[in-house]
Computed example of a mutant assay.
Amino acid sequence: MSTSNLDSSSSVTGSADIPRFHHTPFYCEENVYLLCKKLAADGIARSDGSDLFVIFISNENKQIPLWHQKASHRADGVILWDYHAICIQKRKDSNLPHLVWDLDSSLPFPSPLSTYVSETIRPSFQLFSEFQRFFRIVHAPIFLRSFASDRRHMKDTAGNWLHPPPPYEAIVAEDGTVHNLNEYMEMSSADVIKSVGDDTKDDVYAQRLGVLVSESQLEEIFSLIS
């Protein structure tokens, strides 16, 4: 992911040790891939990652404002990403809040979903239509089998790196696909679901690219996912 200038688990949240999770600046999609694997391996999530969901945030213009981001140079932490990727953990106990794991956030790590929405997405903040944000929700077990990136999006036309790549080998999907990041990032208002229902929940668990929702539907769909 890249930026633009913006001028015109326990039941205790915020207690995770961030350094235990791998983080390469500007490679949020790979960071969230490794994060899901680590949460499952360490017993913070289910061993198969079935309580985890990867969320890609973007829009047609590849300009989405998010607050409380470490890469921001502003006091309010707002930054304009072309896209971003986070993990949401569905809690077994309905009395516990769903958790957002965002390695690029300055909020407590992890944060309750409601807190993350109000502080990072800020739906009450009136945005111009070109900055409206869409959310692609993908079930983590499907994502971990299907995602691939050869990091071509991080090279300029001469083949030089725009940002230094992670030190490990590029991620290849189980079926041998070497790059499909663009499929997760591409979002259109025409593809946003009209309403949230049981069929939406089923699609999240079945579709390789999950479902695309608006910001007003994000918390609603997680109230239905079991």
Rank of each mutant, 00 (worst) to 15 (best):
residue 21 F to C: 01
residue 2 S to F: 14
residue 130 E to W: 13
residue 42 D to M: 11
residue 201 K to H: 08
residue 52 L to H: 03
residue 203 D to V: 01
residue 105 S to K: 00
residue 177 T to M: 07
residue 17 D to E: 00
residue 12 V to H: 00
residue 19 P to S: 02
residue 23 H to G: 04
residue 74 R to T: 14
residue 31 N to E: 12
residue 213 V to N: 03
residue 196 V to N: 10
residue 134 F to E: 01
residue 80 L to W: 04
residue 39 L to G: 07
residue 120 T to F: 02
residue 91 R to T: 05
residue 63 Q to L: 15
residue 198 D to S: 09
residue 11 S to A: 07
residue 11 S to N: 08
residue 143 F to R: 09
residue 144 L to D: 05
residue 93 D to N: 09
residue 131 F to I: 10
residue 216 S to A: 13
residue 103 L to G: 05
residue 86 I to Q: 05
residue 139 H to L: 10
residue 94 S to G: 07
residue 184 Y to N: 11
residue 54 V to T: 10
residue 92 K to M: 02
residue 102 D to M: 04
residue 21 F to V: 03
residue 90 K to I: 00
residue 80 L to P: 02
residue 221 I to P: 08
residue 165 P to S: 11
residue 127 L to C: 14
residue 191 D to Q: 11
residue 116 Y to G: 04
residue 66 L to V: 05
residue 188 S to D: 13
residue 46 R to M: 10
residue 94 S to E: 04
residue 142 I to S: 12
residue 40 A to E: 01
residue 59 N to L: 14
residue 72 S to C: 15
residue 204 V to R: 03
residue 145 R to L: 10
residue 99 L to P: 02
residue 42 D to Q: 10
residue 48 D to I: 12
residue 170 A to N: 07
residue 5 N to S: 07
residue 127 L to I: 15
residue 47 S to N: 14
residue 37 K to R: 01
residue 76 D to C: 11
residue 185 M to D: 04
residue 195 S to A: 09
residue 62 K to N: 14
residue 73 H to P: 09
residue 143 F to Q: 08
residue 119 E to Q: 10
residue 49 G to T: 01
residue 58 S to G: 13
residue 127 L to M: 15
residue 220 E to F: 03
residue 16 A to Q: 05
residue 87 C to D: 03
residue 151 R to D: 03
residue 214 S to A: 15
residue 225 I to W: 01
residue 33 Y to F: 14
residue 78 V to N: 05
residue 161 W to M: 06
residue 216 S to V: 08
residue 122 R to A: 14
residue 78 V to M: 01
residue 61 N to W: 08
residue 4 S to Y: 09
residue 127 L to A: 13
residue 106 S to M: 08
residue 136 R to D: 00
residue 81 W to I: 12
residue 129 S to D: 15
residue 42 D to F: 06
residue 12 V to S: 07
residue 154 M to R: 11
residue 19 P to M: 04
residue 156 D to F: 02
residue 156 D to K: 01
residue 53 F to E: 03
residue 151 R to F: 03
residue 189 S to Y: 12
residue 197 G to V: 00
residue 53 F to V: 14
residue 49 G to E: 02
residue 185 M to G: 07
residue 118 S to I: 11
residue 156 D to S: 03
residue 137 I to T: 11
residue 155 K to M: 12
residue 223 S to L: 14
residue 101 W to Y: 10
residue 51 D to Q: 08
residue 119 E to I: 06
residue 140 A to H: 03
residue 29 E to G: 02
residue 74 R to H: 13
residue 184 Y to E: 14
residue 218 L to V: 01
residue 84 H to T: 06
residue 98 H to F: 01
residue 50 S to N: 05
residue 36 C to Y: 04
residue 218 L to K: 00
residue 219 E to C: 14
residue 198 D to Y: 11
residue 128 F to I: 15
residue 7 D to K: 13
residue 183 E to Y: 15
residue 30 E to D: 13
residue 77 G to N: 09
residue 222 F to G: 03
residue 68 H to W: 13
residue 123 P to S: 15
residue 23 H to P: 03
residue 177 T to C: 10
residue 145 R to F: 13
residue 206 A to V: 07
residue 161 W to N: 00
residue 216 S to W: 08
residue 44 I to V: 09
residue 138 V to T: 11
residue 35 L to E: 06
residue 187 M to R: 13
residue 64 I to N: 10
residue 207 Q to A: 07
residue 98 H to W: 00
residue 52 L to V: 08
residue 24 T to F: 04
